[in-house]
Nucleic acid binder design. Sequence first.
DNA 1: TGGAAAGTTTAGCATTGGCTAAACCTATTG
DNA 2: CAATAGGTTTAGCCAATGCTAAACTTTCCA
Lengths: 138, 138
Amino acid sequence: MPQRTKKPGASKIRSAAFQRIRADHSSELAEDYVELIADLIDEKGEARGSDVAMRLGVANATVVKTLKRLQDAGLVTQEPYRSIFLTGEGWKMAEDGRRKHKIVEAFLLALGVSEETARIDSEGIEHHVSEETLRAMA
Amino acid sequence: MPQRTKKPGASKIRSAAFQRIRADHSSELAEDYVELIADLIDEKGEARGSDVAMRLGVANATVVKTLKRLQDAGLVTQEPYRSIFLTGEGWKMAEDGRRKHKIVEAFLLALGVSEETARIDSEGIEHHVSEETLRAMA
DNA sequence: TGGAAAGTTTAGCATTGGCTAAACCTATTG
DNA sequence: CAATAGGTTTAGCCAATGCTAAACTTTCCA
């Protein structure tokens, strides 16, 4: 039954939220990678592909492919068979991710959830909280 | 510099969070669709592909393709050129999404963020909160 | 009633993010 | 110092989620 009086307006505004979520998703993986690489560098002095793969729970080949994209995006630098480095922009993104992560995780703990849950949920939530919500949490 | 002493253990546990996030993402879109379809049915009596497309901010063809998957998954039923219906399972998923959505949105509002932000952020967060965190929020 | 308008579907393409298996380097050590 | 073990990359596959353009239905109205 097509052809009804169409009534635009609110719909366009509604869709904004979903569009932001889709945009978030593209950057989400990138943020997870650079954050993890930063952690590895701080922890063990270097970040290697296989460590990244293991911690993310994906295959080595997947990491290689993704790192290529991150390199194109100017977030990491690497040479074949060598370990991975972050660019300035990569570090900035990693720091920002850590900051959000910390706020969300601390907030969840303060809310009374278990450490396990706080860790897991904050990982998922950190990419979807606006600065305004972060301020409210802090 | 390969060949260092590998040290597994904590890594496997860490990766669990990321694996859950990846799993969440597959169901996230499905949840958004059924929730939106449920809203449309309640609001205007029927859900049409183009309404879904407009509210999600994607092309019509994308909705057609996705609905085919949702049909295969047993969440919606449809016939060509007709409007969309939810199966029992579809309704269950929609209700569950609405429930989470409401809790998260109300919680964000109580936290003092603006209505606009609460709406947008809750849309992104609702798929990543565990039941434990929901209980804590409620 | 017979088009034209408007909505829906199909076809074909691109990108992202996964995988396995095979080929390829590098560093250790015998 | 050469073989080998072990990490890394390549090749080739798949599914999901987008898109545009073209074909196809349905409905409404002149």
